[in-house]
């Protein structure tokens, strides 16, 4: 299921004195089964864009194609339930997503709301809680009696339990401990590769964007500033710093190495593993 945005514009509090334009003229495609990362400085419009991907926000101009559905400005959208089932969003603040009295009820709510039996929902809940690295004991707790990172994990589990076709993640690792960050990012990547899920990731981690994405979209001041493959995007440090972003640590280290070497390596390395292999190969060639 591809998702296409065409010239999408959105303002908060439209038509009031507090109107604030958040995004304009946003056009891009999220091809089915791909891993797309959206990066951009604070306030550039990333979360606003994401909420259009399952029609939580409706465009003031332009249109969004979600599979066979088209959500256009000025038209009432009916029967959005199917869209919401197929496109699951993990919000930037997990507190905005949790509401029920126990973790188990909270996670079961999504699937049951979309017609899954209670028994099946409970089964999915157990699976999901394991995928995010929480013990089963948390199922009986109130989601509001958890630590920040534990809440984040429950919010992620809630979306996984819906088994969406498209996973939309708004800074899903903020608040996770370093180990959890790595495990959960790898888990998303496995779901995308093995189960054919589409992943849309908003992140401030250039490292994660470099490692996981097939395609990167850079937002700047409410507009799409650039799109491209990670290797192209991270080859051009200036265009990144222009918009408040940076190159990943690996690329920074590669540049330091190249200044000793006196010339650039054949390619920009996107992960520390790739760079280590490249440096080792080079030494082999030189000796």
């Amino acid at each position: 299921m591809d998702i296409k945005l065409r010239e999408v514009e959105y303002s908060y509090a439209a038509g009031t004195p507090f109107e604030r334009q958040a995004i304009m003229d946003v056009t891009f495609t999220i091809p089915s089964g791909q891993y797309v990362a959206i990066i951009g400085h604070t306030g550039s419009g990333k979360s606003t864009v994401l909420q259009h991907l399952n029609a939580l926000l409706r465009p003031l101009k332009g249109e969004i194609e979600i599979g066979s559905r088209t959500i256009a400005a000025g038209r009432k959208g009916k029967k959005l339930k199917d869209v919401r089932r197929r496109v699951g969003i993990v919000f930037q603040f997990p507190e905005h997503q949790l509401f029920d009295e126990t973790v188990e009820k909270d996670i079961c709510f999504g699937p049951m709301n979309f017609g899954v039996s209670e028994e099946e929902a409970k089964k999915r809940t157990r699976e999901a809680i394991g995928l995010v690295g929480l013990p089963e004991e948390v199922l009986g707790k109130s989601p509001f009696d958890l630590s920040g990172g534990q809440m984040r994990r429950v919010a992620i589990a809630g979306v996984l339990a819906m088994k969406p076709d498209v996973l939309v993640l708004d800074e899903p690792t903020a608040g996770l401990d370093p180990r959890g960050r790595q495990d959960i990012m790898n888990m998303f990547a496995t779901l995308q590769k093995k189960n054919g899920l589409t992943c849309v990731l908003v992140t401030h981690s250039m490292e994660d964007a470099a490692r996981y994405a097939d395609k990167i979209i850079i937002m700047h001041k409410g507009q799409v500033y650039r799109t491209g493959a990670p290797r192209d995007i991270f080859s051009d440090a200036d265009s990144l710093t222009n918009v408040g972003l940076d190159i990943p640590e690996t690329v920074r280290f590669q540049r330091m190495f190249e200044s000793h070497l006196g010339h650039p390596l054949d390619k920009v390395c996107l992960t520390p593993e790739e760079l280590a292999a490249e440096v080792s190969r080079l030494r082999g060639e030189m000796t």
Binding site: D177, Q182, T250, F253, P272, L275, A276, V279, S280
Partner: peptide, 20 residues
């Protein structure tokens, strides 16, 4: 402990593993 190591430490390890 749920933690990890900073980039330079990780890179050192990977380079050593790659035979440097």
């Amino acid at each position: 402990l749920g933690l990890g190591v900073p980039f330079a430490v990780q890179m050192s390890q990977l380079l050593t593993d790659a035979g440097l």
